[in-house]
Design a protein around this nucleic acid. Structure first.
Lengths: 214, 214, 214, 214
DNA sequence: CATGAATGAGTTTTCATTCAT
DNA sequence: CATGAATGAAAACTCATTCAT
């Protein structure tokens, strides 16, 4: 386990190894319980080198958050084609989201739990990413309403709340899927699409939303 | 803000003061960053007394979680009348939930963030409560389906996922409402009821769910 | 276990109960590791009462040492008849000594180990008793030499050393007997009498000292 | 008295300095009363360094016991030539023993008092060494009996007791010599040899054992 | 007399962080 | 570049001891 101790790697590579190690340790132990010693050891470098490259525990944690936030946003982005209908975009985005969080549980723990639990500074870092996603979802809802040929009397504040709720539900399901082995990204996405798109009342009438064949 | 420094109080009273202080500090700083010194000071007692009554930091944290979990469940319970229709029950429950979390933000932080971030032992404590709520919501969905005179072909796993998503959305909205001064419990509940009950598609058709006049 | 909680006992009795408890705890845990809490609990009284009667942990320990030192000296004294021959006196004294230390292992631990291990003040307390015993043994040796019709050219320093060695050997055997279930006071005394009186060289010639029939 | 504060020493050296300091403090104050602060200060290093190298107070104490036990055994061993007669071996061993304990009173306090007073784990550490010495003495007695052309009818248990008594007497005399400035190792050894080899009865007849001219 | 309530002072231990080589 | 050596600061926890009732 841990990176093989190789000598003389370019700085950029070493930094990534350190971040890899840091994300894993921060994700497992939490920010405060994580020790720089353990991170350095897992990264296969000496502690002073970690400080040389990343300055402090705070900076290291921030770097982790940033990298993982960007990675997550990128993953979701690259899963979505903006020329498709809104429901399809939402479906694809959710699928990408659940796939990514499922593949990188430590990173997800850092973003969803650790970063929000240890001070405003870190939380703000995640909030930025989150708002990007919420904005994307908000946009989707507005577009969808337009596509439905309906002048949306949904006020802005209301739409914001809906997007917030949808994202919150997605986050919650990600954690749920991560702790229930048998739940696949596809299942999680289906559940959420049904819930969000059709609503409970509709669902109970038998009108479920149907995922695309992909 | 801390308790007035009065001397010689009966044990039961002092214990509550300590828990009050602990919830606040744990909520603000997180479990690990919270120091027993700070808690004791805010409670207006000396550290040894905290240890005498609550044994250890772990036990103190557990006691906080338990007290606040029970308080939250009790608040929701007492807001709901089980003889009313399902949607009304859900509405009342959400209202009570948002009202309580809004009035006790530190407690909500302890339950929603801190407890889940610092070890299985603490997480399990909250999970128990959460499952109680998820079970309540699950029951509501089943009952609602029956009331809709529809044989619910919703499989059990699917219902569980829906309840999970609904609760997750609620939790997320609670945090959202707590950080946006202008969002009232009533607004949060309305948003979520619309989202959950009518679904986005319905909403965009103009078919919103209408809150009761209360 | 521990004294039965009875009310309103005369002070002298209560004090003895406290000392009993203290000797047991000090003997088992050592001076520093013993806690006043545990002692008070075992004695069946409240902590402030212990302080009222015995002032401080130091004073309590000193009181224990004194009581047990006197008890041990008294036990040895009452086992010896000074009108008998010297070897018989030594034999009787050793028998009484091993019997007493065997019956009160905690007390012996306090005197032999704890008191000497925690500061000059306490050690001095035991030294007083020990010197009494060494003096008794010294006297015995002098008398025996006189009885042997031999002008003892043993110088005083030499006799003091011998007495010291004898007492040291006895103390050591007491601990040895206390940890080896099967060694009786009588056996310990026999071994030591042989060693001291006959010497190894004599023993190896087959000339053992014979214990009285008692 | 403490080590001169020199910076950047190799680990092995620093560890010995720490053990030196620890032995002195443990010997003077006892295990529990000794504080890591005082030890670190006497060693001329910071407390974290002590923990980095020696792990914990327990481990530090154990390390002290081990080092000093080995040193004592080595001192006695190197003083004895196994090709000489038994009484000469005993004499040489005692001489080495008293010389070593006289030169290292704190170490002797650690081994003889502190280690036996604070828990089985530590006591066991010393017991190992002590049993080695008792075995050596036992062997000596057996050999001496054979040399005396006497089939020793001394039963095994009896010999064990004699060795125990002899070692106990030596230990006791070591403490005695340490507290009486004017008693030299040679005097202590002479006294004990006389006592053990000739026995009191013989001594009083004027038949003392004669130390070699060395 | 007896005790529940309370604490000042100290303990071991850990960690992020920095030099000197 | 890289690292072994080193530490200031703080944290959890304990205990002998004392009032107020």
């Amino acid at each position: 386990m841990g990176a093989v101790k190789t000598k003389r790697m370019p700085r950029a590579v070493r930094e990534q190894q350190m971040l890899d190690a840091a994300v894993e340790i921060f994700g497992r132990r939490g920010y405060m319980a994580a020790s720089m010693d353990e991170i350095a050891e897992l990264a296969g470098v000496s502690k002073p080198l970690v400080y040389l490259y990343l300055n402090s525990k705070e900076d290291l944690f921030t770097a982790c958050i940033r990298r993982e936030a960007q990675a997550l946003v990128a993953a979701v982005r690259s899963g979505v084609r903006t020329d498709l209908p809104a429901d399809r975009q939402l479906w694809d985005g959710l699928l990408a989201f659940f796939a990514h969080t499922g593949r990188h549980p430590h990173a997800w723990s850092v973003l969803h739990l650790q970063a929000r639990t240890h001070g405003e500074t870190f939380a703000a870092e995640v909030t930025a990413m989150r708002e990007e996603i919420v904005a994307f979802v908000t946009q989707l809802i507005v577009v969808a309403a337009r596509e439905a040929h309906r002048d949306p009397d949904l006020p802005e504040r209301e739409v914001a709340g809906l997007a917030e709720a949808l994202v919150g539900a997605a986050e919650s399901l990600a954690a749920w899927a991560n702790t229930h082995e048998s739940v696949t990204p596809r299942q999680a996405a289906t559940t959420l699409m049904n819930f969000a798109w059709s609503g409970l009342a509709d669902l109970m009438e038998g009108n479920a939303w149907t995922p695309p064949e992909g």
